[in-house]
Design a protein around this nucleic acid. Sequence first.
DNA 1: GGGTGTGAAACTCTTCACAGCG
DNA 2: CGCTGTGAAGAGTTTCACACCC
Lengths: 184, 184
Amino acid sequence: MAVGTKNISSARLSRLSGFSAPQVRRDLAYFGSFGKRGVGYSVGRLREEVGSILGTDQPRNITMVGVGNLGRALLAYKGFDRHGTRFAVAFDADARKIGSTVAGVPVEPLSDMERLVQEHAIELALIAVPAAAAQDVVDSLVAAGIKAILNFAPRALTAPEDVKLTNVDLAVEVEYLSYSLANG
Amino acid sequence: MAVGTKNISSARLSRLSGFSAPQVRRDLAYFGSFGKRGVGYSVGRLREEVGSILGTDQPRNITMVGVGNLGRALLAYKGFDRHGTRFAVAFDADARKIGSTVAGVPVEPLSDMERLVQEHAIELALIAVPAAAAQDVVDSLVAAGIKAILNFAPRALTAPEDVKLTNVDLAVEVEYLSYSLANG
DNA sequence: GGGTGTGAAACTCTTCACAGCG
DNA sequence: CGCTGTGAAGAGTTTCACACCC
């Protein structure tokens, strides 16, 4: 593959992603037909379209609640900065952490959540607090006007219908691999 | 719900898990019929059966490669210790970290990987190294005899057919929520 | 020629609904 | 009676195969 390749085929995307080639085509076609027959997809165009679909083509402020080991790691995680997604502020219950910055992000008290969420127009929050505190955090975030939550605490949480909530239990993946080893 | 409840129905498991009740029943029935009609599932029995299915009923040594922010957070993550899963050893390329312990786990050099993986009978590894180093780590792990890999580096990796590899790109979840906000 | 976009077929997964057992 | 386990129906997803366009 030459550096600077201008076009990419569904067959190559298949090899790179692990999804089958027809599936790549069907999924992309669902959002419009921006491939060229006999050529493939323009890499530049594809980036634009996907960014536009995901909404990552424009800046989006997000926040992190909980600045323990996992919260710090996620604040520093390189995968998020891409695509205009930016941590505007973080929150923690520990008074000793308030006023410090982690990976350049200021840590603020939970009591200022509603004000800061609104000032920064934040719609998406990540949660990395102890399991016991997680549901209270969800309730506070919802009250502050948050519209989507990604929960890393190892407990299933609930939110009102109109708030998108995804639980990411990291142990589940380990258990699945453990199952795969023990069986098929 | 009384504390000490001995039995649990698929309806209650549904509320707790978010899966539908018929689905809970069908999935459990797939592995055998250990529910009682008119009563539900014995909580004790259910724990045993699920542990046996997942292979989490017996101790399993695992390892972590990369002791940066994310690696440290995962080593300290409470969700893994449950179920007999235990970090026996961690690896890092940084000479200054060798010999230290993180969350009680000794950090060893990559050059000792093959020996230590075999000494501890480790079959499952987690990867949290920079994206650029991740594929090399996979190759080393495979050479050392690892059978399953959970990759947290933000890059799709490949391994031979007989090695189970799961890529956990944390940014994907954020992007999906971003998409949900922008659309449905 | 080469590779997309898509109708149709195949498959998988989920839900429904209820027989049957404790 | 209450709830599981499951055949049958339904929904959704993936694959196939090829017409069509660059």
